[in-house]
Design a protein around this nucleic acid. Structure first.
Length: 343
DNA sequence: AAGCAGAGCAACCGCACTTGT
DNA sequence: TACAAGTGCGGTTGCTCTGCT
């Protein structure tokens, strides 16, 4: 029986536009297998046309590649597969199809479902958090007020634990963590106490000039972009055309500051970074100031630059250059420990 | 036994890209 | 070159099963 537009027949089957939807029946599976043997994999529209299947070619492909393909492996993922998927995800991100080509006999959908369900589990176990210092220093910095003025309707809001305030900073995070491996020489820990419990978190080295981090740089660029927002489209086109290369260079400076020589101290590292960031800020602040209704914001941004650099120095000195990476990110023998993983 | 919540999984949707006409 | 159809991919939804209260 064929009907149009989202109707169900007497068997409860779902149809739309002459195409059936919903779970596949064993009979449909058998037809699809037969047609794949006859027409070959990949000719999904031909299979649809030649058979009595009332499924889209797309649906046929999905059914075959996720379930009927005899090369597919079913059942729970082994530890080895899990580890492989961890590594591949760290390398490629959510490129499930690519990952599927490297994990033998698993479909991309299987890998995706496996990863997502495990991620849910992990998020419950280890809810995401920022360090108290990060929240505290961000909310008390001029940076915060500049950004807040850029988002008047959606005010930035950083909530701190009730016992933490600018006047009552948390304990120093630069405490050595006992029982750490070799990487501990470049790591530190962060301790925090509230009424009920105290925490000591080992913190993981995250280079502030790491390409994949760049949160601060993104914020600077976004603030700058917001200030430009008032320009007419034509102005924007002209400016982009003329300044694209220049901006690209600036971004390059921001994103890829020269690495400090091996063996430099933390303070020297920070000084190098600040010097680089300062020059970037200067470059940005020399841009044209013909930005329509956002002059105030941009002025605020520009005026705050010298102060911001001081503040940036303060943030970098006080905020951990290390942030925690949970143990599940990498398999570790010690189930209770946090992984120390350099990004 | 009933109700509920969470986990796991199958399938759909929308978008982007490729290919054919 | 433009358009339509086909295909691939990632995100999301919704169903079923299971365990807990």
């Amino acid at each position: 029986m064929i009907s149009n537009n989202n109707k169900n027949n007497e068997d409860g089957e779902s149809w739309r536009d002459d195409l059936r939807k919903g779970p596949w029946t064993p009979r449909e599976d058998a037809i699809l297998i037969e047609q794949v043997e006859k027409c070959g994999k990949g000719n999904w529209s031909l299979i649809r046309k030649n058979s009595e299947l009332r499924r889209s070619g797309k649906s046929c492909r999905l059914r075959w590649s996720n379930h009927l393909n005899p090369d597919l492996k079913k059942g729970p993922f082994s530890e080895k597969e899990e580890k492989t998927i961890d590594d591949l995800h760290a390398k490629y991100g959510n490129k499930w199809a690519l990952m599927a080509t490297k994990v033998s006999r698993r479909s991309d959908n299987d890998i995706k479902n496996f990863w997502n369900s495990r991620m849910k589990k992990r998020l419950r176990e280890y809810p995401p958090q920022i360090t108290v210092q990060q929240a505290q220093h961000f909310s008390s910095s001029p940076f915060y007020s500049v950004l807040a003025s850029c988002y008047p309707k959606n005010n930035l809001n950083v909530e701190l634990p009730s016992n933490i305030s600018a006047a009552n900073p948390p304990p120093n995070h630069n405490q050595k963590q006992p029982n750490q491996n070799d990487s501990s020489s470049s790591s530190s820990s962060f301790s925090y106490t509230n009424n009920n419990a105290s925490f000591v978190l080992p913190l993981t080295h995250v280079s502030p000039y790491c390409k994949s981090s760049g949160l601060l740089n993104d914020v600077v660029m976004e603030g700058n972009a917001l200030c430009r927002k008032g320009k007419s489209k034509m102005d924007a086109t002209i400016v982009i055309g003329r300044e694209e290369e220049e901006l690209a260079d600036k971004r390059k400076i921001i994103e890829e500051p020269p690495l400090p020589p091996v063996g430099t101290s933390k303070e020297e590292e920070i000084a190098t970074i600040i010097a680089t960031q300062s020059s970037s800020h200067q470059l940005i602040s020399t841009e044209k100031n013909d930005n329509g209704g956002c002059n105030n914001n941009k002025e605020a941004l520009n005026n705050s630059m010298p102060q911001m650099d001081d503040e940036l120095l303060s943030i970098l000195k006080n905020c951990p250059i290390y942030s925690p990476v949970r143990k599940w990110y990498k398999v570790d023998d010690d189930e209770d420990s946090l992984m120390m993983m350099e990004i």
